[in-house]
Amino acid sequence: MATEPHLTDRDRAFYAAWAELLAWARGFAEGRDDAVFVKIADFPDYIYRMERPYDLPVIVMTASLARPRDRQPVLMLNASPRHAVFKEVVVHPFDSHVYRRLTLAEDGSGLVEGRRRFDRQRFEALAASLFHAVPDEAGGTGA
C-alpha cells in the first residue's frame, strides 16, 4: 500500500477501524442467506482531493447489509471525509431516523459507542436484531 505521509496515526487507526467494520458486515452477510453486503457509494475523492488533503485507503463511503430479494437496505454504514475529521462512523438502521454514532477510541484501538466498546459481537447482535425484525415473505416479523 502506498504511504500517505499526511495521515496521522489516528487517521490510520480510524481507517483501519472503518475497514474492520466493513469486514464485519461482509462476514455477517456471508454467514446468512437473508443478507447481502452492498457497496452503495464510493468516496467522491476526485472532488474532495481538489480542495482537501484526504487520501483514503478505503474507498467505500456507504455500505449496507440488505435483503437479497430486492436489495432493500436494512443496516447502513456511513463514513465520509467529513466523518473522518471527527473520527466518526454512522451505523444507521435504514427504516429508522435514529442512527448510532461510533467514534474512534481514545487509544485508537477500535470503535466505541459513547464510552462502550463497539466490537464485532455488538455489531452482529445489532444486525441480527434488525434482520430478525424484517418482515418475511409470510408476513411475520420472526419476532
Binding site: 430479494r69 430486492d70 418482515p135 415473505e137 409470510a138 408476513g139 411475520g140
Partner: peptide, 11 residues
C-alpha cells in the same frame, strides 16, 4: 434500481 417490495399483509 429495484422497486420496493410491498409490505406483507398485517391486521
Amino acid at each position: 434500481m429495484s422497486s420496493r417490495q410491498p409490505l406483507p399483509t398485517v391486521t
